[in-house]
């Protein structure tokens, strides 16, 4: 029972992490209709940022987290400015190809700069400490609590932003109709930049928590979590924020709990996400919360 509880909390934390990053994918897709393939590389860079700020420059972990957030956001915004903004009126496929190009560029750049030798993510004893509850049977890592609380707070803040602020309403408008938004006087480039700030920030949070769970950093480290978070966004219905969170949690739960109940499957844990993806695409291609998509490309 106690192990079940522990596994469940692990699953929940992993799910929240997937959910956070998935929201970033979903928002970027919602506004640009772009599957941001470069985000896996942003995820990877984000982990290196944490490594350099904490393990090399000896910042305390919370300052390290802030530095990591700031640098990741800067990277995300630069990518948008350099690789996506010039293609604003180009066909969608050009944008997607540009994103793939950025992903490869960053990955190879990282191999040159950081070398392919894995680095280890900094230890943060405060978050990795296990809290023991009751008679010593119920154990929960502080990280789990930190992840779940961050997720709830960040998503609540994001929903508040989208529903109740002028910029948030403008964001929803731009995601439907660039031209009419411009006619309202909305600066669509500014709105898109804000979307990338949010997306990259959430990616940094995800990368931070991922690093604490799987503390090995290499230039290809972003591929698997990046792909899974994208799958989470598709499962929830891409473009939908609550869907992305739910998709992430489902993915996390399935991945961890299946291995718990069927230990023999542990070698296959990475394929569950893809099986879920295939099932969703077969039976509900628009995702759990997805609206009917009218393709205006």
């Amino acid at each position: 029972m106690a192990t079940l509880f522990q596994q469940f909390t692990n699953a929940l934390a992993l799910g929240c992490l997937y959910g956070l990053v998935a929201v970033g994918y979903s928002m970027v897709y919602g506004i640009l209709h772009l599957i941001n393939f470069a985000n896996s590389s942003v995820f990877m860079f984000s982990m290196y940022f944490a490594f350099y700020s904490v393990s090399v420059f000896y910042l305390p972990w919370y300052f390290g987290l802030i530095a990591m957030l700031a640098l990741t956001i800067l990277l995300g915004v630069c990518i948008e400015r350099i690789a996506y903004q010039p293609l604003r009126s180009a066909p969608r496929i050009s944008l997607t190809i540009s994103a793939i190009g950025v992903a490869y560029l960053l990955e190879n750049f990282a191999t040159v700069v950081f070398t392919a030798v894995p680095k280890s993510f900094p230890d943060i004893p405060f978050l990795q400490e296990v809290i023991v509850l009751g008679n010593g049977e119920w154990r929960i890592q502080r990280l789990v609590i930190f992840v779940v609380i961050s997720m709830v707070v960040l998503i609540a803040a994001l929903l508040f932003f989208l529903e109740h602020t002028k910029m948030g309403v403008a964001t929803r408008a731009v995601s439907k109709d660039f031209e009419t938004s411009q006619l309202m006087g909305i600066n669509i480039n500014a709105v898109i930049r804000v979307t990338f700030i949010i997306g990259s920030g959430l990616t940094a949070f995800g990368a931070f928590m991922w690093g604490l769970k799987y503390p090995q950093i290499s230039p290809t480290v972003g591929a698997m979590p990046g792909t899974k978070c994208f799958i989470a966004a598709v499962v929830g219905g891409i473009g939908n924020i609550k869907g992305a969170v739910l998709g992430g949690i489902i993915l996390g739960l399935v991945e961890v709990m299946l291995v718990y109940f069927f230990p023999g499957l542990s070698g296959y844990r990475d394929i569950f996400a893809f099986i879920i993806l295939i099932l969703i695409l077969l039976f509900k291609p628009t995702g759990l919360f997805g609206a009917k998509v009218t393709d205006k490309a």
Binding site: R172, S175, M184
Partner: peptide, 18 residues
Amino acid sequence: HVFPNLTVLENLMLGAYL
């Protein structure tokens, strides 16, 4: 070209965006 995913009030609000 009203914004179909926004309420009537939000549409009007964007009219006064600037």
